[in-house]
């Protein structure tokens, strides 16, 4: 009986300690970067910067939320950028064709849904590894969309409803100023998935399936179902982020989502997920996205050649993989 009490009593402090261990590094890096950038530039700590970041972060976060689910479940989705592109092209076409906005939105989300299900079908029923399936899909989708749009930029000028979502804001708050819709939508989705992953049976099964699919199956978990759901979630969120992207740009760019998959995977890995599955948290992912976003922004503010941004993401992946490998070696599970 004594032990039970100990187990319960030590919980609080243990939670804080493990949080610090888990996220301390990321948090520290983020703070250091912010301090460094604000010392180096005049504008970094301004509201404009905040707004710029808050404009750029939502797509990344939406994609990263999905990618975190997929990577916890032991998969990877290289095709999110292409899904975004297809969704953006489709939405552009529909809206330009005079269809109502809600219809475009519904079609886009449905596309994501179907697409995620197709991915999952190959992965679960045909047992092709996710890397290969989604790599193939990356090319197929982008190729299809190029064909379908003749690789043209589709401008949807002056469609009010679009603008309202893309650059509109929900509230005018003191100090912070405008709170844009994309930020609100993203925050809500982030919160929902954070709760799903940590507080629901589905979330627990996602971790279990990623950690050991055979053990999960023998414990009665619907392994295929959970995997399918993770890939569908990712694709739908990618489609949603495409919708927000074109709403802001007010156009269907033909390079929409290009290379996003690597940025997102880099961030998720940096946030503590493992290529082996079973690990990762949305808080870690968010911190990593913020870190990379801040870094990219700083690069621009410092006037450094912006192509460095691309390289920075590569470095992030390397660092993340290095940390993961080191952690695994420390645990003796090579």
């Amino acid at each position: 009986m004594k032990k039970t009490n100990i187990a319960l009593a030590s919980k609080r402090t243990a939670v804080w300690r493990s949080l610090l261990l888990q996220y301390g590094g990321l948090l520290l890096a983020l703070l250091l970067l912010m301090v460094a950038f604000s010392l180096k530039t005049d504008h970094f700590l301004s509201l404009t910067t905040l707004r710029t970041i808050s404009n750029q972060i939502p797509y990344a976060v939406l994609l990263a939320v999905g990618m975190t689910c997929v990577m916890i479940v032991g998969g990877i989705d290289l095709s999110v950028g292409s899904v975004m592109f297809v969704a953006a092209a489709l939405a552009g076409k529909l809206v330009l064709g005079g269809q109502p906005l809600w219809l475009a939105c519904a079609v886009i989300l449905l596309t994501g849904l179907v697409y995620g299900a197709v991915n999952a079908l190959f992965i679960t029923r045909l047992r092709v590894i996710p890397f290969i399936v989604t790599l193939a899909m990356l090319s197929i989708l982008r190729g299809l969309a190029y064909t379908f749009t003749d690789a043209a930029v589709q401008n949807a000028h002056n469609i009010e409803a679009f603008r309202a979502i893309g650059i509109g804001f929900i509230a005018q708050l003191p100090v912070v100023g405008r709170v844009p819709w994309p930020v609100v939508i993203t925050a809500v989705i982030f919160a929902v998935f954070a709760v799903i992953l940590t507080r629901t049976t589905l979330g627990r099964y996602i971790y279990a399936v990623g950690g050991n699919p055979r053990a999960a199956a023998l414990s009665g978990v619907r392994v295929y179902g959970v995997k399918t759901l993770a890939f569908v979630i990712t694709a739908v969120l990618a489609a949603l982020s495409a919708f927000i992207l074109i709403a802001r740009m007010n156009s269907g760019q033909n390079n929409a989502g290009f290379g996003f998959e690597l940025q997102v995977i880099g961030a998720v890995l940096l946030g503590g997920a493992s290529l082996a599955g079973g690990q990762g948290t949305l808080v870690g992912t968010l911190l990593a996205v913020l870190l990379l976003g801040t870094l990219n922004n700083g690069i621009i503010l410092l006037g450094i050649n912006s192509h460095w941004q691309v390289a920075v993401n590569g470095f992030a992946i390397l660092i993340a993989v290095f940390l993961d490998a080191r952690r695994r070696r420390a645990l003796g599970q090579d």
Binding site: R204, Y207, N212, R214, A215, L218, V221, A276, G278, Q333
Partner: peptide
Amino acid sequence: DDGLVLPLSVRANMTLAALGRFADLTWIRG
């Protein structure tokens, strides 16, 4: 190979097959 979910906690491993007992619909009563 097919018993332990190594990255997960003792608690999560223990309750994996009986999680429904502690859940309202899908919400786990921690």
